[in-house]
Design a protein around this nucleic acid. Structure first.
Lengths: 161, 161
DNA sequence: CTTATTTCAGATGAACTGAAATGC
DNA sequence: CGCATTTCAGTTTATCTGAAATAA
């Protein structure tokens, strides 16, 4: 991630070049652009805690949903089991998560946050919330709610086939 | 990106675990989740054309905005000039872009699509549009428009620190 | 036997930092 | 001189593919 904060983006939201039925950039792109900006900002916020945006997302999922296997986390993050296995090893080495055998299915290793993992999330919680507020600063409560609902529908639509 | 389509995501949009003022997951997360899904699907769509989602985004920006320097593209994608230089080399080697000196500022190399680059975009255009429709399938025109507007505001808010 | 989960090994691509050359 | 742009060199990290072990 770039250390230097982006200064200009040369107005990506400019007028469409065609003049017939052009509905502007696909929402696909806009989502990607926003996420690019989110990641850059989130990495900066997370740098003092020494975790990447993706690692942080995994920790947040664990906080929200409790014990999960690495394979479940992988599906949640759209990566392979192997990649998630790598990330799990990193987070374990950092002492942020721990694993225990699932007694009902002994091939599974259920992951949970350690006290240090909880502490890390607590430490960055305010800064992350502030970033979220900054992102949605110009939206009112109604718009924010509609945005959340629409995004959730988009995600659901993409993960079904 | 995982070859296997994700089957379950264990309902990330479930009820909040707290019962006091919990507004659910931050919009930050939801954006990230949607983008994760977009990238996985986009990579699959783009695989026959042998370009990554990020490369395709860069090509699309060039199509939409015309000649740009690598540094401008870097700012647009929130990466360093060095990283974009790498990607430019790759796209040049593939014959998808070409560069010419900017006569008004001779340290700049302006990038534009080659005929092959244009052709590649044409080839995948329908598939990408179909993916966009699939993503926003459950939204009506009003909701789609509101989503686009809100996302653009989020992006604008994040890039003006 | 088939499937899910985990993990090892190796290869590759993408991004970074640092430093240097060029031009305004 | 300062700043922007490009690029070389080296490094790190992330992810993938393939293969194997374990358990349901």
């Amino acid at each position: 991630m770039p250390r230097t904060a982006p200064l200009d983006v040369e107005s990506t939201s400019g007028a469409p070049k065609g003049d017939h039925l052009d509905t502007g950039p696909l929402l696909l792109y806009v989502v990607k652009q926003v996420e690019l900006a989110v990641r850059a900002n989130l990495d900066e916020v997370l740098k003092p805690a020494d975790v990447t945006a993706l690692q942080y997302t995994a920790l947040s999922v664990l906080e929200r949903r409790g014990r999960l296997s690495a394979a479940q986390l992988a599906r949640n993050s759209f990566v392979t089991n192997q990649s998630m296995s790598d990330m799990v090893r990193v987070l374990t080495r950092k002492g942020l998560i721990s694993r225990t055998r699932d007694v009902t299915d002994r091939k599974r290793l259920l992951i949970e946050l350690t006290p240090a993992g909880c502490r890390l999330l607590d430490e960055v919680r305010d800064a992350v919330a502030a970033l979220d507020r900054r992102m949605t600063g110009t939206l009112n409560a109604r718009q924010r709610e509609a945005l959340g609902r629409s995004l959730n529908e988009c995600r659901a639509a993409l993960q079904s086939p």
